[in-house]
């Protein structure tokens, strides 16, 4: 039987080969979350095991303006967008956790699969019995699932699922997300109950886009850190 070939760490992958590989990935049907989970978790593990391929994809971001523009910095984490193919249900990015962490119960505009490449998540799922708006009472979000997601863990959650992920500093995860299922996602800070929303880039102001865009210096910092951590 033919063996699965994973590139050895010292063998570079050309940009052309990386793109050909990514082009060969399947369309993901996010309306069937179980099927989407099976396929996206396999894709995430395949990418996570292949450092030369990941390195080629990260380096390609520099030369691909439509991806570079989507690399962002936020309070809790930064992101590098590796691949964006919404017609196949595939936006693939690296989530790079910053050192400052606080607990905020939130859902997402999209369903997604996360594969922890380095570090760990303290992952808690929540239930509530109230509308998700500015009147939400922070005391009425009840944790019903708590576990640590260690390096190597992979999970898929629906965009409506409320959760928190407290990460160790420099936790790196590979995320595969669906196209947006709603225009804004709910966030409430556990410490004081402040509610706010996260919108998609299309709904953000130019000022906001400029504010979150990752600088070249920050991009270089993350590439160096990814190499040092051993993800690339």
């Amino acid at each position: 039987m033919t063996e699965t070939v994973v590139n050895p760490a010292d063998q570079a992958v050309s940009e052309q080969d990386a793109v050909a590989f990514m082009d060969s990935l399947p369309a993901v049907r996010w309306d069937d979350l179980e099927a989407a989970a099976e396929v996206t978790e396999a894709i995430a593990r395949r990418l996570g095991e292949d450092r030369p391929l990941l390195r080629a994809l990260v380096e390609r971001i520099r030369r691909t303006p439509e991806l570079r523009e989507k690399c962002e910095c936020h309070a809790l984490d930064d992101k590098l967008v590796l691949w964006d193919e919404p017609e196949k249900g595939l936006r693939i990015r690296l989530r790079l956790a910053n050192t400052d962490q606080y607990e905020r119960v939130h859902n997402h505009r999209f369903s997604f699969t996360a594969h922890i490449l380095s570090g760990a998540y303290q992952h808690t799922l929540y239930a509530t019995d109230q509308p998700l708006d500015e009147t939400a009472d922070v005391s009425r979000f009840w944790p019903h699932f708590v576990r640590e997601e260690p390096t190597g863990s992979c999970f898929t959650i629906h965009h409506e699922q409320l959760h928190t992920t407290i990460t160790e500093p420099e936790t790196i995860s590979l995320m595969i997300q669906s196209p947006a299922a709603k225009r804004r996602a709910f966030i409430i800070r556990k410490a004081d109950g402040q509610v706010w929303w996260r919108e998609g880039a299309a709904d953000e102001t130019a000022e906001r886009r400029a504010e979150v865009r990752m600088s070249d210096e920050r991009f270089d910092h993350w590439v160096a850190r990814l190499e040092a951590i051993g993800v690339l």
């Binding site: 070939v5 060969s24 399947p26 396999a42 395949r46």
Partner: peptide
Amino acid sequence: EYRPVWDG
């Protein structure tokens, strides 16, 4: 089930 192109 069998391996997809992108996984061997």
